[in-house]
Design a binder for these strands. Structure first.
Length: 301
DNA sequence: AACCAGGACACAA
DNA sequence: TTGTGTCATGGT
C-alpha cells in the first residue's frame, strides 16, 4: 500500500539520529514500530532536493513523494498510526516559513529538504536517548539492537526475513539486573536505564499524559527521572511527544550554533537557552533538526 | 594511538 | 549560576 505525501526524505528522517531502529536494506528502510515490522520505500525516484529558482526555504519546491509501505501481513493496509509516526501532517513549507530569515538556516533547510520530525513511542524514545549520552549514533543503534534482541518480544516479519524484535517494555527492563543491562555494552548508562524503567514501571510518571502539559512542566517532570537532563528531556519532547518547540542542544548543534550565530564564541549556558527559545520561533525543534543533520552530513563529506 | 561521542551528575568556586 | 572530573565503551 502507499501513503501519499509531499516533501519526504526517508533517509534523512529515519537515519538522522532521531530513531535508532531503522536500517537501509535493498533500497528500502526497515524497522520495528509499536511491535510491528515495517518496510518503507519511495515509490517513485525522489532524486535529490530540487532547489527552486530563488533557492530560499520559504519558496522551496514541493514535490510528491509517495511512500510504499510493506508489512508482515501482506493483506493488511498501512497501520493507522503510521502517518502520525512519520509526521506526514507537518507542512514543511509552512514550518520553514516561520523560521528566521538567516542564511545559515536557509542553507541547512535546502541541504536536507524533506527531513521531518517523527512521533515515536515515548518509552522507546526515552530509553534510547538514555543510552545516547556520550555515545556515537552507530553505537547507540548497536546497543538498542542488542537490547531488543535480548529482551524484546519477537514480531512477525516478511517471509524469509531474519527475526526482528519489539523494543522491550519498561516493565521488562525494570525486571532486569544492572548486570544484564551492562552486558548490552551500555556501560554506566545501565544504572540510569534501570532506575528510570523502574520508576515508570512503578507508575511514578505517565509519559503519554505529558503531551497535554505545557512544555516547561513536561520537561521538568522528565528531568526528575534518573539520567535525564535537559538535553535528553528535549529529545523526548521533540521526537516523541510532539513538542515542536523543544530544542535539544548536543555537541553537534552546539558547534553549529557557535559557528553560525556566536562568531565561534562559547555562549554561557543561560544565554544559549534563551537564544534557542527565542530566535527560531514555534517550530524551533525543526530548525534544530535541520542544523543538526546539516552539520553531520557536511562533516562526513 | 590519541581523541571524541545526540550527557548527566556530584562537587567546587 | 557556571566550570571541572568522572563515568564505560568503541569509532574514527
Amino acid at each position: 500500500m502507499t501513503l501519499f505525501t509531499r516533501d519526504y526524505d526517508l533517509a534523512a528522517t529515519l537515519s538522522g539520529g532521531q530513531a535508532f531502529r531503522w536500517r537501509e536494506r535493498d533500497g528500502g528502510w526497515e524497522g520495528v514500530v509499536r511491535g510491528h515490522w515495517l518496510r518503507l520505500g519511495l515509490s517513485t525516484p525522489a532524486g535529490g532536493p530540487e532547489p527552486d529558482a530563488q533557492g530560499g526555504c520559504r519558496l522551496a519546491s514541493s514535490r510528491e513523494t509517495p511512500i510504499a509501505v510493506t508489512t508482515a501481513d501482506e493483506r493488511a493496509g498501512a497501520p493507522p498510526w503510521l502517518a502520525d509516526y512519520l509526521g506526514l501532517d507537518d507542512d514543511l513549507s509552512a514550518v520553514t516559513a516561520t523560521f528566521p530569515d538567516d542564511s545559515a538556516l536557509r542553507r541547512a533547510v535546502r541541504a536536507c529538504w524533506g527531513l521531518r520530525l517523527l512521533r515515536q513511542e515515548p518509552w522507546e524514545c526515552l530509553a534510547s536517548f538514555l543510552l545516547s549520552s556520550n555515545k556515537q549514533i552507530v553505537q547507540i543503534r548497536q546497543i538498542v539492537a542488542t537490547l531488543a534482541a535480548r529482551f524484546g518480544q519477537p514480531v512477525r516479519v516478511a517471509r524469509g526475513h531474519p527475526p526482528e524484535f519489539a523494543f522491550p517494555t519498561a516493565d521488562r527492563l525494570a525486571a532486569c539486573t544492572e548486570t544484564e543491562l551492562r552486558a548490552c555494552q551500555m556501560g554506566f548508562r545501565a544504572r540510569y536505564l534501570l532506575a528510570t524503567a523502574q520508576a515508570l514501571a512503578a507508575g511514578r510518571l505517565d509519559l503519554e499524559r505529558l503531551r497535554d502539559w505545557p512544555l516547561d512542566d513536561a520537561r521538568r517532570r522528565l528531568m526528575e527521572l534518573p539520567g535525564v537532563g535537559r538535553k535528553i528531556a528535549d529529545c523526548v519532547l521533540l521526537f516523541s511527544l510532539g513538542f515542536r518547540q523543544a530544542f535539544p542542544v548536543d555537541v553537534w548543534v552546539l558547534k553549529a550554533l557557535r559557528r553560525l550565530y556566536f562568531a565561534n564564541r562559547c555562549p554561557a549556558p543561560r544565554e544559549l537557552i534563551r537564544f534557542t527559545e527565542t530566535h527560531f520561533g514555534p517550530f524551533a525543534g525543526y530548525a534544530q533538526q535541520y542544523l543538526f543533520h546539516h552539520a553531520r552530513i557536511t562533516q562526513l563529506d
